[in-house]
């Protein structure tokens, strides 16, 4: 069962889909655990090194954004939720924080010449670059990221 109670049906010859819901607090160990769970599922479903690199980077950036920006004014113990579904075709990860959100459209372009020397503001750019689809909702406090396996 994945986000929203969706069930993925697969042909019996394929590996079974992996899905789950996690809640974590702001700690390196918790973030590492989420990345490990999702990447192990990805590897079980045949995702190669380049895909795992992309997924790990996107999850890392989204979780760090959730805690650093979303939960900036909230207690450190406030949890972030992660729903994930992995099957051989795609990986869908939904990360939701409990902060006030933000307007993703107002983020400055970190690749603009005048912003290249700014040390922050590249997380969303990297998520968009590495994932197939990215959708923000709930005023920016919820990000849905989909990575599709390229067919051979």
């Amino acid at each position: 069962m994945g986000p929203g109670g969706a069930v993925i049906c697969m042909a019996p010859t394929h590996p079974q889909p992996d899905a789950g819901r996690l809640e974590i607090q702001s700690s390196r160990d918790d973030i590492d655990m989420v990345e490990k769970v999702i990447l192990e599922a990805a590897q079980r479903h045949g995702y190669q090194d380049a895909s795992c690199f992309a997924i790990r980077l996107a999850v890392e950036e989204a979780l760090v954004n959730a805690f650093h920006h979303g939960h900036r004014d909230l207690p450190k113990s406030t949890p972030v939720s992660i729903n994930y579904q992995v099957n051989p075709q795609r990986i869908c990860i939904v990360i939701e924080d409990q902060g006030p959100g933000f307007d993703v459209e107002t983020l400055p372009d970190p690749t603009a010449e005048e912003n290249l020397q700014r040390p922050t503001g590249r997380g969303v750019l990297l998520i968009r670059a590495y994932m197939t689809r990215v959708k923000f909702s709930k005023n920016g406090s919820r990000i849905e990221m989909t990575y599709e396996q390229m067919s051979n």
Binding site: E61, V64, L116, P119, T120, R122, G123
Partner: peptide
């Protein structure tokens, strides 16, 4: 692996 936070530190070093 590195993250955007690591890139930020590199930029600060460069500055």
């Amino acid at each position: 692996h590195l993250s955007s936070a690591a890139l930020g530190t590199l930029i600060t070093v460069n500055n």
